[in-house]
Simulated scan of single mutants.
Amino acid sequence: MDVTDLRIALFSGNYNYVRDGANQALNRLVEYLLRQGAAVRIYSPTVEDPAFPANGDVVHIPALPVPGRAEYRAPMMIPPAAKRDIRAFAPNIFHIASPEILGHRAVTMARKMDVPVVASVHTRFETYFRYYNLAFLEPLVEAGLRRLYRRCDAIFAPSDSMAQLLRDQRMNYDVGIWTRGIDREIFHPGRRDLEWRRGLGIGDDMPVIGFIGRLVMEKGLDVFSDTIDRLARRGVAHKVLVIGEGPARAWFEKRLPQAVFVGHQTGADLGRAVASMDMLFNPSVTETFGNVTLEAMACALPVVAAIATGSQSLVTDGVTGRLVRPGACDQFADALAFYCRDPDARRRAGEAGEEVSRRYGWDAVNQELVDHYLRIIRQHREGGRQPRRSPVP
């Protein structure tokens, strides 16, 4: 069996209607699979005006707006028409990309069809609730995730640190790695554009601290803004550049009135914006990999990040940037002040980060997942599926 024999049913709560790192990784995977001769069918909610064109054929799954976050949809079931489509497609593996009700229903259907099923983990979903005064729900959410992932033949994390966390949480016996790649034609130091910065009112010698991502509270916007307040009180010269859109933009703009907000950027424009920063500040603890961290490293920027899944696998403290205890605003400010005041230190850390980024290519990391697909199908046919219960008490 090889890649041309693969027939993959992919289930996602957001394949392309709102742009984020997870669904862009899924679209790159599908593009690679189709290019290699595999058959793929995607089952996801759709909208009339998606954030970007979808790779592959997407079958619409009905969904309801998420309360308080209406830009996202919550699929509640697999309707009969979609079930008929799945059976007609006759997949030989199911891939679950989001842990909501659609994922649970897809696992149940895979079991009824006697088809192996895997899941990819894209975010620290259980941590989101602490940002909306619902932290008491975190143990219940983690238990729900464990129930879903233990029913899968294998699960995949985008980083070694996230994989270890999933093992510690007893999510599954078989925890593999499906990491992320970088498009080096978009992200590289040559994209730096001082003229573009000047157009934003930023001087050539002014250290620029960047934020990249969706403007939502779970990205650590409170920690970011509190840290910037400390820098200002210390009299550290700097400018904040924010790339991204989201429901918390108005709040973030009010907290950082001196910052420059350039909105959502894509392609070469995104590469230019990232390379035109002087450092990235990523205080989030919800990422499982940290695409923006890798993008900044590819542009030769030092990264100041929280000690969290994803960042720990990319950033080497004191070499390519600094890793700081989550929420420790004074220590974050220390690290940022160091890079603001020392251009040589910025250069050394940036060069080291760029060298690390060269290890990540999309085709190579997607082929690793293909190899796992083939292994899991073979094991399933041979009756070698791992037990569903965790060995850790």
Score class of each variant (00 low, 15 high):
residue 2 D to L: 11
residue 7 R to L: 06
residue 9 A to K: 00
residue 9 A to P: 02
residue 12 S to R: 03
residue 17 Y to V: 00
residue 27 N to E: 09
residue 32 Y to Q: 08
residue 33 L to W: 10
residue 35 R to D: 15
residue 35 R to G: 15
residue 39 A to K: 15
residue 43 Y to G: 01
residue 48 E to I: 08
residue 70 A to V: 15
residue 75 P to F: 00
residue 81 A to Q: 09
residue 82 A to F: 01
residue 88 A to W: 01
residue 89 F to Q: 00
residue 93 I to P: 03
residue 99 P to Q: 07
residue 102 L to N: 01
residue 108 T to W: 00
residue 116 P to K: 09
residue 116 P to A: 03
residue 119 A to W: 00
residue 119 A to M: 12
residue 121 V to S: 09
residue 122 H to L: 08
residue 124 R to I: 08
residue 128 Y to L: 10
residue 135 A to M: 03
residue 139 P to E: 03
residue 142 E to H: 09
residue 142 E to N: 12
residue 145 L to H: 05
residue 151 R to Y: 03
residue 152 C to W: 03
residue 156 F to Q: 03
residue 161 S to W: 07
residue 161 S to H: 10
residue 165 L to W: 14
residue 171 M to V: 09
residue 171 M to K: 06
residue 171 M to Y: 10
residue 182 I to D: 02
residue 182 I to L: 11
residue 183 D to E: 14
residue 184 R to W: 01
residue 189 P to H: 06
residue 193 D to G: 07
residue 193 D to Y: 11
residue 194 L to A: 13
residue 195 E to N: 13
residue 201 G to Y: 01
residue 204 D to F: 07
residue 205 D to P: 02
residue 206 M to C: 12
residue 206 M to T: 15
residue 215 L to P: 05
residue 217 M to D: 13
residue 222 D to K: 13
residue 222 D to V: 15
residue 226 D to A: 15
residue 226 D to Q: 15
residue 229 D to M: 12
residue 238 H to S: 06
residue 239 K to G: 05
residue 239 K to H: 12
residue 240 V to L: 03
residue 242 V to R: 01
residue 257 P to K: 03
residue 257 P to H: 11
residue 261 F to L: 07
residue 263 G to Y: 07
residue 266 T to F: 06
residue 274 V to E: 04
residue 280 L to N: 03
residue 281 F to W: 07
residue 282 N to Y: 12
residue 284 S to Q: 08
residue 285 V to H: 01
residue 285 V to L: 02
residue 288 T to F: 11
residue 291 N to W: 05
residue 297 M to C: 04
residue 301 L to G: 04
residue 303 V to C: 06
residue 303 V to P: 02
residue 309 T to P: 09
residue 312 Q to F: 12
residue 314 L to K: 07
residue 316 T to K: 12
residue 318 G to D: 13
residue 324 V to T: 04
residue 328 A to N: 13
residue 330 D to A: 15
residue 334 D to N: 11
residue 335 A to Y: 02
residue 337 A to R: 10
residue 338 F to P: 00
residue 343 P to W: 06
residue 343 P to D: 03
residue 353 G to W: 02
residue 354 E to Y: 08
residue 356 V to Q: 11
residue 357 S to P: 01
residue 359 R to K: 14
residue 372 H to R: 14
residue 372 H to I: 04
residue 374 L to S: 01
residue 377 I to E: 07
residue 381 R to N: 13
residue 381 R to M: 14
residue 383 G to M: 02
residue 384 G to D: 11
residue 386 Q to H: 14
residue 387 P to Y: 01
residue 387 P to S: 05
residue 389 R to G: 07
residue 391 P to S: 08
